[in-house]
C-alpha cells in the first residue's frame, strides 16, 4: 500500500511538472491558436535566467522564479512585436517552420553565451532530500512542484481562462474583425496573452531546471512532451492541460514501476489512444 501511494504521489508530481512545462504552450496555442514551438526555447531561457540570477547575483531561488517569469515575458513580448505578430493569420505549417527555426537560433545563441555544457543548478537545502509526511517518505522538491503546479492551475483557470480577459482573448481569436469593431484593442490583447504564455514557459524552465538540467539542447529534448500534453489535454483549455499532465504523469510512473519492460512506451500509447478516442483532446472544444 505504501508503495502504491508513493508511486501515485510521484506520478502526480511528474504530472505537475508536465503541466507546468506545457501550460505556456497551452496558452499561446490553445487560446491564441498560434503554434509556437519556440515556447520550449522560452523555457530554456527561463532556466538560464534562474541560474544566472541565483549564482551571479546571489538572489534566492524563490525570488528568481518571478524574475524568470518577468524577463522571459518581456523577451517574448519583444519577439511578438517584432516577429510573431506578422504570422498570426498564417497556416500551421508556416508557424511550425518559423518557430522551429527560432528554436535552432536560440540553441546557437545560448551556446554562444553560456557554452555547450550543462549548467550547475542548485536549489536551497530545504528543497532537497526527503520529508516524512503521514508515514510516507516524500521528496521535498516534488512536494514543492505539486504545490506550485496546483496554485498555478487555480490562478490560470480562475484568473485567465474564466475571466473577462479570457473571453476577450477568445473573441479576438475567433473573429478578429468583429472584436475590433466592438472596440477591442486586439493587438494589445494578443501581445499581453503572448507575454503571459512566454512568461509561464520561463517560469516552467526555472522550476524544471533542477530535475531536467539546463543545456542548449533543452528545447529539442522536451518539445515532444510539451506537444503531447497540450494535444492530449485539448486546445484552448488550461484544465485540460492539467488533466492531461496528471494522466500522463501517473500513467508513466505507474507503468515504469509495475511493468518496467514497457518503459517509456506508455506515455506514447496513452497519447495515441486518447487521440483516437477524442481527436480534439480530452477537454478540447475547437474543431
Amino acid at each position: 500500500m505504501t508503495s502504491v501511494l508513493t508511486v501515485l504521489f510521484n506520478g502526480v508530481a511528474y504530472g505537475m511538472l508536465l503541466f507546468i512545462m506545457s501550460v505556456g504552450l497551452s496558452v499561446t496555442m490553445g487560446m491564441m491558436n498560434f503554434v509556437n514551438l519556440a515556447q520550449a526555447s522560452f523555457s530554456m531561457l527561463g532556466g538560464y535566467v534562474m541560474v544566472a540570477v541565483t549564482q551571479q547575483l546571489g538572489i534566492p531561488f524563490l525570488a528568481s522564479l518571478p524574475i524568470a517569469f518577468i524577463v522571459v515575458g518581456i523577451v517574448s513580448l519583444v519577439l511578438e512585436r517584432v516577429v510573431f505578430r506578422h504570422f498570426y493569420g498564417t497556416d500551421d505549417l508556416t508557424q511550425v517552420l518559423l518557430t522551429i527555426g527560432l528554436i535552432f537560433m536560440s540553441i546557437a545563441i545560448v551556446t554562444y553565451f553560456w557554452g555547450s555544457t550543462y549548467q550547475q543548478v542548485s536549489v536551497p537545502a530545504w528543497l532537497t532530500g526527503q520529508q516524512d509526511v503521514l508515514g510516507f517518505t516524500l521528496e521535498r522538491y516534488r512536494m514543492f512542484l505539486v504545490a506550485v503546479g496546483g496554485a498555478l492551475a487555480l490562478v490560470l483557470v480562475f484568473g485567465l481562462e474564466r475571466t473577462r480577459f479570457g473571453a476577450i482573448v477568445r473573441a479576438c481569436v475567433d473573429n478578429n474583425r468583429v472584436a475590433r469593431a466592438c472596440g477591442l484593442n486586439t493587438d494589445l490583447v494578443f501581445a499581453l496573452t503572448f507575454a503571459i504564455g512566454g512568461g509561464l514557459a520561463g517560469l516552467a524552465g526555472a522550476l524544471a531546471a533542477n530535475l531536467l538540467g539546463i543545456d542548449p539542447n533543452f528545447p529539442l529534448r522536451y518539445l515532444v512532451y510539451l506537444l503531447i500534453v497540450v494535444s492530449v489535454g485539448g486546445m484552448g483549455t488550461i484544465s485540460g492541460t492539467l488533466i492531461a499532465g496528471l494522466v500522463l504523469g501517473i500513467g508513466d510512473v505507474a507503468c515504469k514501476y509495475y511493468v518496467p519492460e514497457l518503459g517509456g512506451f506508455v506515455i506514447y500509447a496513452i497519447t495515441v489512444a486518447v487521440m483516437l478516442w477524442r481527436p480534439h483532446g480530452l477537454l478540447g472544444r475547437r474543431a
Partner: peptide, 20 residues
C-alpha cells in the same frame, strides 16, 4: 535489473523498484 529509455526525465518509479 532494469533498462531505462534514453529519453527519460522521470526516474522515481525505477528508484522505488530498486528500493523494494
Amino acid at each position: 535489473n532494469v533498462r531505462i529509455p534514453l529519453s527519460n526525465p522521470e526516474f522515481s518509479a525505477y528508484m522505488q523498484r530498486i528500493k523494494d
